[in-house]
Design a binder for these strands. Structure first.
Length: 492
RNA sequence: GGCGCAUUCGUCUAGAGGCCCAGGACACGGCCCUCUCAAGGCCGAGACACGGGUUCGAAUCCCGUAUGCGCUACCA
């Protein structure tokens, strides 16, 4: 179609009005995946034409979120490219140039009505009759226009929609869709402040930037006929359009709040990142909301596998409810796929945030103990803390398994102390063998012995596997904590 | 109100006329494994929104209804 020489040129075009939302991340991902698979380009463009909604810090949040996810852009802010600038507020002269063309060709016209007047006319005419509305504003007498111009009123430029017939558009996900032209109101292309609206800026930029495939939210589907009219008026070829469905809240009923993520329903990439999700897991999860392979039976993908398998032609039209359970599961799967020292590195920031001054090398020995026990990075803290700091004193009740008396526990602790004190080598396998031998010799259930030791060493009922933990703790600390437990059970 | 989109287990989905009395996954329940917790294995329960057509035959095609959602801004 457009630009046959380019296999794929896609773009994600967020507005700097908030944080990076997972819906934008999904659009970026689908674009990026297609570009990487087809050998095309993924472009980042900033649509900052609404000065009133600009939010400080938003741009950084979006860019850093995309980078963290690994969705690097080939053209855009910071990296440049042949069709820049990639920030719309820096492209004003370009829009004005094309507005002049549309004005000259009669596809667009200036209006001197204020927004308030337009609102009033709209209300008077009624929502259901765009044609009458269009005619009304197109028919301001020239004298009136001149009068307002003289008074300093800046015009807005509107696009002149056809009154008859229908515009037939094609959405790659849904197929052909027909819109009666009389149902569309003339849209504003250029605001009186000289800034273009999305309807105009996005079409001009997509055309100039040689975009072949436009991925955007379904909320744009109703404006598609308008957009193809604008593109045709500009004399350009129409790119392929894919309108991505909405995300629904986990109940599957309401739509996800667009602008604010709660702790219950996090929807911003930085929130998920702070919660301990891996970028590759997040991408895997997001990719699956609205897309699946023909077989439909694969859920776990590495990034290279995703690039391989992804196909824009298989994106679904129905909205998808966000499933945090699945995100958690997928994250666990990806955590388990990590090389242990890679996991150790990723854990460091979370341990440090919890107040543990550790290094990747420092926690590396413990990582294999917890790797299959955590579904997100933050969970590691509770499993590892007792290795780095003496835990609060264990509860005597938890130290004493059912059917055992404190005196018996003391006796087992003493025996274990003796077993461990001279054990060589002090590694997990030897420790296990020694402790099991001891349990058998003394006639205590292994499970009871291990429970006693687990609580004595970690002060927890749930902790990493005992033998490996003892090895990591080291002989000195292990014996010290056994002594402490002893002291608790038999006060001097 | 107008215009448009969507509708398969609770959720994400496979299914593009017979392969489907509908397959996979998460979650859920049970069992197994087991030093706790996990991970893993096995088993189970669970869906084609409704009504008409078309067809020898429909989850798949058509129409209608219902429900949900979007747009209807000089916001994107």
């Amino acid at each position: 179609m457009t630009n046959a020489s380019n296999p794929f040129r896609g773009r994600v075009a967020p507005s700097p009005t908030g944080f990076l939302h997972i819906a934008v991340a999904r659009a970026a991902l689908y674009n990026w995946l297609s570009a990487r698979k087809l050998g095309g380009q993924f472009i980042l463009r900033i649509e900052d034409t609404d000065r009133a909604r600009y939010v400080e810090g938003s741009l950084d949040n979006i860019k850093s979120g995309l980078r963290w996810l690994g969705l690097d852009w080939d053209e855009g802010p910071d990296v440049g490219g042949p069709y820049g600038p990639y920030v719309q507020s820096e492209r004003l002269p370009i829009y004005h140039e094309y507005i002049q063309k549309l004005l000259a060709s009669g596809h667009a016209y200036e209006t001197y009505y204020s927004k308030e007047e337009l609102d009033a006319i709209r209300e008077e005419v009624g929502e259901a009759d765009p044609v009458t509305f269009n005619r009304r504003i197109q028919s301001m007498p020239e004298e009136e226009k001149a009068r307002r111009r003289a008074a300093g009123v800046k015009p807005a430029v509107l696009f002149k929609m056809p009154e008859d017939g229908e515009t037939v558009v094609y959405d790659e996900i849904r197929g052909e869709i027909r819109f009666p032209n009389k149902s569309l109101r003339d849209p504003v292309l250029l605001k009186s402040d000289g800034f273009p609206t999305y309807h105009f800026a996005a079409m001009v930029d997509d055309g100039l930037m040689k975009i072949t495939d436009v991925l955007r939210g379904v909320e744009w589907l109703p404006s598609l006929p308008l957009h193809v009219q604008v593109i045709q008026a500009l004399g350009w070829e129409t790119p392929r359009f894919y309108h991505l469905s909405l995300f629904l809240d986990p109940s599957g009923k309401g739509k996800m709040s667009k602008r604010k993520g709660s702790n219950e329903y996090p929807i911003f990439v930085h929130q998920l990142r702070e919660m301990g999700y891996l970028p590759e897991a997040l991408l895997n999860w997001i990719a699956l909301m609205g897309w699946a392979e023909a077989s439909g039976d694969r859920e776990v993908y590495t990034i290279p596998e995703l690039i391989q398998a992804f196909d824009l032609g298989r994106v679904r039209a129905a909205p998808a409810a966000v499933d945090y359970d699945k995100a958690e599961w997928l994250n666990g799967v990806h955590i388990r796929m990590l090389a242990p020292d890679d996991l150790a590195r990723r854990l460091v920031p979370f341990m440090q945030a919890a107040g543990f001054d550790v290094t990747a090398e420092g926690i590396a020995p413990m990582v294999p103990l917890i790797q299959e026990r955590i579904a997100n990075l933050t969970e590691a803290v509770d499993l590892l803390d007792f290795f780095f700091v003496t835990p609060p004193a264990p509860d005597p009740a938890e130290l004493t398994p059912k059917k055992l008396t404190p005196a018996e526990v003391v006796s087992e602790l003493l025996a274990a102390r003796e077993t461990l004190a001279g054990l060589e080598p002090f590694d997990a396998a030897s420790i296990e063998a020694a402790l099991r031998g001891m349990a058998q010799a003394r006639g205590i259930k292994p499970g009871d012995l291990f429970t006693i030791l687990r609580v004595a060493l970690s002060s927890k009922r749930v902790a990493p596997p005992l033998f490996g933990a003892i090895a990591c703790l080291g002989r000195t600390t292990t014996l010290a904590r056994i002594d402490r437990a002893l002291g608790i059970l038999q006060p001097a």
